[in-house]
């Protein structure tokens, strides 16, 4: 041990031993003191459960409000009343059959409905039943007979 180390030990010892038990303030162990413990959730899983329930409720609400599921969504377009065109002579389809069979002139498949002006309409303004109440479009002269709107296929109600 060098002289410096001996001096260090002596000085540190003198300073430390200058503190005696009588110099200390009266204190109690931490078990007797009111040490605030960190607050914990009573049930750690309760938060996760409440969050899951909330998410499920929101998801159910959103799903119930989705368009198309409540009957007000887009319905299939009814077959529009077809009007024989001027070139109907070349069209062999003048049969008013309500057959869903493919016909160049009468197409029952739901496509973009055409209004009276011939422009496609995104959505029919009336139900297929009410469409029948409209007066037939004037038939151009030369047509064999005015075409009546075929009734919609049973699939469309």
């Amino acid at each position: 041990m060098t002289n410096l180390e001996a001096r260090l030990r002596a000085a540190l010892s003198a300073r430390a031993l200058s503190v005696s038990a009588d110099d200390l303030q009266p204190a109690v162990p931490p078990t007797l003191a009111t040490v605030p413990k960190p607050r914990r959730l009573a049930w750690p899983w309760a938060g996760a459960l409440a969050g899951g329930v909330a998410v499920a409720l929101v998801a159910g609400f959103v799903a119930a409000r989705l368009p198309g599921d409540d009957g007000t969504g887009p319905a299939p377009n009814p077959p529009a009343a077809t009007v024989p065109s001027q070139q109907s002579s070349s069209s062999p389809s003048s049969s008013p059959e309500a057959s869903p069979g493919i016909s160049p002139g009468v197409s029952p498949e739901p496509g973009p409905a055409r209004g009276s002006d011939g422009l496609p309409k995104g959505r029919p303004e009336a139900s297929p039943g009410s469409a029948r109440s409209h007066p037939p479009v004037p038939v151009s002269p030369g047509a064999p007979e005015p075409s009546t709107a075929p009734s919609p296929p049973a699939a469309f109600g």
């Binding site: 001096r7 260090l8 002596a10 000085a11 540190l12 003198a14 300073r15 200058s18």
Partner: peptide, 10 residues
Amino acid sequence: LLADGDREVL
């Protein structure tokens, strides 16, 4: 309570 030498070291 501390000697001079101790005070110097501290």
